[in-house]
Design a protein around this nucleic acid. Structure first.
Lengths: 337, 337
DNA sequence: GCACATTTTGGAGGCGCTTGCTAGAATAAA
DNA sequence: TTTATTCTAGCAAGCGCCTCCAAAATGTGC
């Protein structure tokens, strides 16, 4: 049986109240007693029981993290950022993958029981009312890589600026006929990226016909299929901008298999900067998102929002609700550089 | 304030003991009362407080997972396996990355406080005595991708068989002069893989000179450097077996940059089957490890070992201590197929 | 050395739940 | 019907810690 606070108190010749106080350095305790208690703690190898502490203090010192059930290095990076920030603040991490249909909202149950003091939701499909239901219980929520509005803080990559930079880079190469392979239709990310592209084109007196905007779904095959479709056009595009790297890489494959060269015949660029992008041939020019930082900031923010239930809302609104993290151009070979 | 068991009891007109019993379906409760209680639970949207439950029952229903602080898809897969298994058993997951120097043994503290009922340690460097210290507190420990002996169950990939299969495959191609790019020297993985290779060669009356065994460290540059070294040999190897895919991919790059072709001039194969391996050119022939399964089995085993402190040891030894999961050959292009 | 302000410490109540014990209800056996 | 046996459900004692309140110790100014 592990030592309890009672054992420590007895061993140090003080009351449990005093032990508790030095452990949580709340009220003042005289240096002499403090040292006696600390010594006892060391000698007994005492570690406060997290349940008792949680029950008594109504705080778990734990951060909940929900991520999609997807095998993507992208998310791993976010987790690392969140974990570092949480550790930094003395918080533990409780992780749940997005529910498969069979266990829907499992994480909700989990976190709803008062297990976590705050939570970070990464790019997952949740309904606003679910989030608000949790927030209503006084558990701060922060979103990453996703935004639902409604006073829920969100950390996003600056898709618009990133996409603008990329488009300008392509125009700088002299390309005029651009094409876009979109991500899943309804995601704001993909829409933002397209909007930036069209804005830049317009500013240069150019435009992109609808036949050069083909749908994809961010996954492997869709990039390949989309590119095949673009290759059917009577006039081929000079450069293709894919909404993510995965699709860009598959588009390159489609182009190469059709006997054309990248970037000589058609330039291809992506978005995300996944590890693979520097390994494909030609190496992919893309946009790097500050994924780790996104997780880090989201976690810090979530923890900062922890506090008395009464003024959650107030604290929520104290800082900007949406934070756009810079997305930067990574120039490699596939753009023609 | 969330509803407590007391609220439910009052609402259902029973005692809290009864509510607890229907919630944990331990002792028998008459169907009528059970239904009344369940109804109250639903109406009040009651969720048992995990701390109170943990404190009273001395169980956390949580599985601890420690993984290296490495950004590797490999570990992500393991986490998924562990998570699925844990969820399956009604357990939550508390995750800790391997401590950076500054926060050494942080996870130990974390888990030692009685936060977790069992733990899975993945490929991390811990000292045996630390593990035993935890085990001594009655917390079952299972290792994955690592083995320290001493009665601690371990789940490993069958490196020996996998490497044998690969070596035989290479010999089947007619290659006779093989080379090996080793992983970090002291890891048993790398040693096992090399041993299998040498055994197969010996069985065919062949051998590999020490000048064809070069050290690497599993990371990017080392594969490149190692290959450069191999390219200095007066007689070049016909096939190179790298201890992991990352190094194999970099070896390919080194070969190609030196003006030679893969696999025509030198064949290259790896171990792990990371996602990138099917994308490089030529696509990499490699060995696939059942990573997800490893996590899954390790978690299941750890949970199965939970129980009264007295007979932890007994339960530990009830099943085989070391489990080797099959590693299978994935044939692509880089071997010459 | 005294009265009073201030700092430090002890102690008890309570956080929400599990569980062994027991009384009462229901059923079976006599 | 009475007695013995099984079910069912209430009660209360914790689980280990935090925190408020009051008591004790220490310090201050006169």
């Amino acid at each position: 049986m592990a030592a309890t606070i009672f054992d420590v108190a007895k061993h140090a010749g003080v009351s449990i109240g005093t032990v508790s106080r030095v452990l949580n350095n709340k009220d003042r305790v005289s240096p002499a007693t403090r040292e006696r208690v600390l010594k006892a703690v060391r000698e007994l190898d005492y570690h406060a029981n997290a349940f008792a502490r949680g029950l008594a203090s109504q705080e778990s010192n734990t951060l909940g993290l929900v991520i999609p059930q997807v095998n993507d290095p992208f998310f791993f990076q976010i987790v690392r950022g969140v974990e570092d920030a949480a550790t930094d603040e003395g918080y533990s991490l409780l992780i749940a993958s997005q529910p498969r249909p069979a266990r829907e909202h499992r994480y909700l149950d989990l976190f709803r029981r008062g297990n976590v003091d705050a939570m970070v939701l990464v790019a997952i499909d949740v309904y606003i009312h679910e989030i608000q239901q949790i927030a209503a219980r006084g558990v701060p929520i922060v979103l990453a890589q996703q935004d639902v509005g409604k006073n829920i803080p969100a950390f996003l990559a600056d898709n618009y600026s990133g996409s603008r930079a990329m488009t300008e880079h392509l125009l700088g190469h002299g390309y005029r006929r651009l094409a876009y392979i979109a991500g899943t239709n309804y995601t704001p990310d993909s829409r933002e990226r397209l909007r930036a592209m069209q804005d830049v084109l317009a500013e240069h007196g150019l435009s992109m016909g609808p036949e050069y905007i083909v749908p994809g779904d961010y996954l492997q095959d869709s990039g390949y299929r989309a590119m095949l479709e673009l290759l059917q056009r009577p006039v081929l595009p000079e450069a293709v901008f894919a909404a993510n790297d995965q699709m860009a890489i598959d588009a390159i494959r489609a182009i190469q298999e059709s006997g054309l060269r990248v970037p000589e015949d058609i330039a291809v660029v992506g978005f995300d900067d996944i590890p693979m992008s520097s390994y494909v041939s030609p190496a992919l020019t893309t946009i790097q998102q500050p994924v780790y930082e996104m997780g880090w900031h989201a976690a810090k923010r979530a923890i900062a929002m922890i506090g008395p239930e009464e003024n959650v809302e107030e604290r929520t609104l104290a800082s900007p609700r949406v934070m756009l993290l810079p997305a930067s151009l990574v120039v490699r070979k596939s753009c023609g550089c």
